[in-house]
């Protein structure tokens, strides 16, 4: 059977199975376990309503526990064992890893990524959001800047590989250098700065996201505050920096952290651009080097990423709980 047919059958089975599960479990709950037709009908309905939420969330929670909660523990446990998974080495994978030059390069580059990408994407996003706010063709412009969001990281890497190509008749960067009389360079091999050329791909992709969120936030600012500032004689820059930005700091922070988290997950760009060569490795791509080869080391890297993400996770939970109250 061709995979696509299997896929369609799977959809049918899965959807029917889910619907069937929910319908059947509700039926069993209402009719079999707590039948309403008996003497203590009211108590039975109340009891059924105590159980029902659990029926509703059970499949989702199963997925979450098996595929997201168990692996956190599982990865940590696995990282305590050696390559073959037989010998317990304690924190050996971690000490070995931290002593390695390659890991430190990846960690350093990842710190660069975490600083530069969210900052640049948020900056460009805010810039575009503000500039297009009153523009007649603003929506079209936003649409164009939002577009890279739909492209895969691999596709985006290819697009930019073409821009960075060494041949001045192919790569537009080197064509410009050629135009002003400079020798062509392979920007992906320029030590240190190559990281920024790769990072810019991520900025290119994430600016649209920042722009959409910040644009909505700018629109949500109460008009009166701006009008008051205009009457008081504030110039457009003062209005932007002193009236608008302070009112959307919360949203800027959200955009910033969301992109930061994404940066810690994406290995595709480095993988497709340089394969981690020329000192461009970051943690996610470093991990993929060891995936399938040394699971002990790979899980250790994954756990380091997890630890880096944890503060954001805690902060999110605290925020969510505060909101619910």
């Amino acid at each position: 059977m061709s995979p696509i047919l299997t896929g369609l059958v799977t959809i049918a089975i899965a959807v029917a199975g889910c619907a069937g599960y929910f319908y059947a479990s509700n039926w069993v709950l209402d009719r079999v376990i707590f039948p309403p037709g008996t003497d203590d009908r009211g108590r039975n309905i109340a009891r059924a309503n105590l159980v029902r939420p659990w029926l509703f969330i059970l499949p989702a929670m199963l997925f979450l526990s098996v595929y997201l909660i168990y692996p956190v523990v599982g990865s940590f446990w696995r990282s305590l064992f050696n390559r073959s998974g037989v010998e317990f080495v304690g924190l050996g994978n971690y000490t070995e890893m931290f002593a390695e030059e390659g890991f430190r390069v990846a960690l350093f580059n990842n710190i660069l990524w975490v600083i530069f990408v969210p900052a640049a994407a948020t900056f460009f996003g805010l810039l575009v959001a503000q500039l297009t706010d009153r523009l007649r063709w603003g929506n079209l412009a936003k649409s164009m800047i939002f577009m890279p969001m739909a492209i895969s990281f691999v596709g985006a890497s290819l697009i930019w590989k073409f821009v960075y190509a060494n041949d001045p008749d192919i790569g537009i960067i080197n064509a410009l250098r050629d135009f002003v009389g400079l020798e062509p360079v392979d920007v992906l091999q320029v030590a240190f700065w190559n990281n920024f050329f790769i990072m810019f791909i991520m900025v290119w992709m994430q600016t649209g996201f920042a722009m959409v969120i910040l644009s909505a936030a700018l629109r949500g600012i109460p008009e009166e505050t701006i009008e008051a500032a205009i009457i008081d004689g504030a110039n457009p820059f003062q209005i932007f920096f002193k009236i608008k930005v302070p009112q959307i700091t919360g949203t800027i922070l959200v955009v910033w952290t969301t992109i930061t988290i994404l940066v810690l997950k994406v290995f595709d760009i480095v993988y497709a651009m340089t394969g981690g060569n020329f000192d461009t490795e970051i943690l996610p791509s470093y991990m993929m080097d060891y995936m399938f080869r040394d699971d002990g080391r790979a899980t250790a890297v994954a756990f380091v990423i997890m630890v880096i993400v944890t503060p954001v996770m805690v902060w999110n939970i605290v925020q969510a709980r505060r909101e619910m109250r």
């Binding site: 929670m61 979450l64 692996p71 599982g74 990865s75 988290i261 994954a302 997890m306 996770m313």
Partner: peptide, 25 residues
Amino acid sequence: GFFIAMVVGLLVVPLQIALVPLLTL
């Protein structure tokens, strides 16, 4: 409340952590 907090927390869990244990599973 606990489940909502859990979902919010899991939003940011990096995929990388899941790869090795799940493939083994």
